[in-house]
């Protein structure tokens, strides 16, 4: 199995290390080109600045091939900025990949001074959640499953092959959500 992490900017190394910590036999590769994208069974869109990721994705012609792979069923997981890029609607701007029926509000929790560590249940696992200038999920579409809530807000959602978390599991030492995503790929392969 090969898992890619979109490597344009952001928490790339952290995700790669987490995948390796689950299973050394899995190939964890940075994805910067169409050729690299073609080799992966699943893709993580990491945390970072969504405006930067989006601009680079479009400039370097990764937007269409990534979207096509997701629509064709490739498991994808967006953390924080990645969640924003997957959403169908972004408050105040055009959506990016539009493959997940949720509405989001960028920096919903406020500035960095409002960043926090929360906790809650993620699909039956009690986890710490690191929120850094995180987006709000303001609407969850029909058929989209809420996997986790924190302070009464949805913070992790899944719709088929698309997983999104407003927080950063890659910033913790707990790799169970990475395991969960690997499970999604296992079910496909």
């Amino acid at each position: 199995m090969t898992i890619g992490v979109l490597a344009l900017q952001g928490s790339v190394i952290e995700h790669l290390k987490m995948i390796k910590s689950v299973n050394k036999k899995i190939d964890a590769v940075p994805v910067k080109t169409i050729d690299e994208l073609a080799t992966v069974d699943g893709l993580i869109i990491p945390g970072g600045e969504s405006t930067t990721l989006r601009r680079l994705m479009e400039e370097f012609n990764l937007y269409t091939p990534i979207r096509e792979r997701i629509v064709a069923g490739m498991p994808v997981w967006g953390t924080c900025a990645g969640l924003i890029l997957l959403a169908n609607r972004i408050e105040g701007e055009n959506p990016c990949l539009s493959v997940l029926d949720i509405d989001v509000k960028r920096n919903g929790y406020g500035r960095h001074s409002d960043s926090f560590v929360g906790e809650g249940d993620f699909d039956g696992m009690y986890v710490n959640m690191v929120f850094i200038r995180a987006p709000y999920i303001t609407r969850v579409g029909e058929g989209v499953e809420v996997l986790a809530e924190c302070n009464d807000r949805p913070v992790a959602v899944r719709s088929g092959n698309v997983l999104a978390t407003a927080f950063h599991p890659e910033m913790t030492r707990d790799n169970r959500i990475h395991k969960y995503f690997i499970g999604m790929i296992d079910a496909k392969v």
């Binding site: 344009l8 952001g10 900025a81």
Partner: peptide
Amino acid sequence: NRKLLNRNLAQMLKGG
């Protein structure tokens, strides 16, 4: 937690 979050924010800026 604050120390961690502050270092984490810098990590989010990597490659930028």
